[in-house]
């Protein structure tokens, strides 16, 4: 790791103020992704603002019948929360499908959303990567890209977003609340947090520099069953090859795009009475393979109908 300075933020306003005033500063919450990347010199902030102990870890009911989840709540606490388990089981299922218990105990909700891709070419600093070193090229494009994106990729980047939790949150139509460097709060749909890679895969979200995620807000649970299914090479503690979150009539896919992928075409097809296989077929019409990741198209075309059937079983609703 390169040298950096460290401060522990006392409140959110001070944290964003410090971020605005300090060049090349980063927020540090759980650290499970940022420190991993700093050790590899993929990330090299000059200054860390530890927001891990800010009073943003509460999980509260909203007046609208939803839940507000503080950005500093640990992944484990969210997964274990009785309200989440009863009303948003897809969220619990997605969270416990990610990482390991030790990682989930440390990782925050905000950090989970902002975790960076696990693309091997991003991680290996001897390789070109437009996300890590803009303009250097994409090592994965012509490389061993078995786990790369089939939706929304660009010639500059075919990396995927690794979060499981975010896939469920997108299917649940969550919103994020953020605090700007000027101390202004705003909120917007989580679906609009992450960007597709385009020409600038190093810019991964629509947050403005120095903005801090303070909470994720869930609307009341949708009608209908919920389920999260993740397929991977081993049974646990590994990245997904593909995943799907279903929440009533809404569906999102994981490990297939630079962002959690809301399967809008499939949702529309299902709503108009198409079979699950037809519906996911409509979604996959926009998918494209890059060599070794073509199997994901087949995998999703088989996984999603199975997941839809599972979500329609009795007792899967909120």
């Amino acid at each position: 790791m390169r040298p950096f300075t460290y401060e522990r933020a006392t409140d959110a306003a001070a944290a964003v103020k410090s971020a605005a005033e300090t060049p090349n500063a980063k927020f540090l919450a759980g650290g499970t992704n940022l420190l991993d990347l700093m050790k590899l010199e993929i990330e090299h902030p000059n200054h860390l603002i530890d927001v891990g102990r800010l009073p943003l870890a509460k999980i509260e009911d909203t007046a609208e019948g939803g839940l507000r989840i503080g950005a500093m709540a640990s992944n484990s606490h969210v997964a274990a929360d009785p309200r989440v388990r009863a009303r948003y089981p897809v969220l619990t299922q997605a969270i416990v499908a990610g990482g390991s218990p030790q990682l989930r105990n440390k990782a925050s909700v905000g950090g989970n959303l902002l975790q960076r891709t696990r693309c091997a070419y991003f991680y290996d600093t001897s390789k070109p990567c437009n996300k890590r070193a803009p303009g250097s090229g994409c090592g994965a494009l012509e490389g061993l890209n078995r786990n790369s994106a089939i939706f929304g990729a660009s010639h500059a980047c075919i990396a995927t977003h690794p979060s499981d939790m975010a896939v469920a949150l997108v299917a649940l139509d969550a919103e994020v609340e953020v605090l700007s460097p000027a101390g202004q709060a705003r909120s917007f749909p989580l679906m609009e947090l992450h960007r597709l890679p385009g020409e600038t895969p190093d810019v991964e979200t629509h947050l403005i520099p120095g903005e801090l995620i303070t909470a994720v807000v869930l609307p009341p649970p949708p009608k209908g069953g919920q389920v999260y299914r993740k397929v991977r090479d081993r049974a646990s503690y590994s990245a997904g090859l593909a995943s799907v979150a279903i929440a009533g009539g809404r569906m999102a896919l994981g490990a297939v795009a630079h962002k959690p992928w809301r399967a809008a075409e499939a949702e529309a097809a299902l709503a108009s009475g198409a079979s699950p296989a037809e519906a996911i077929g409509a979604e996959l019409a926009a998918a494209s393979a890059n060599g070794r990741n073509g199997f994901k198209i087949n995998l999703i075309s088989r996984l999603v109908p199975a997941a839809v059937a599972e979500a329609r079983e009795p007792g899967r609703g909120a």
Binding site: L28, L35, L103, K106
Partner: peptide, 8 residues
């Protein structure tokens, strides 16, 4: 329980 390697 946490991974002490990923914590400062």
């Amino acid at each position: 329980r946490i991974n002490s390697c990923l914590s400062l």
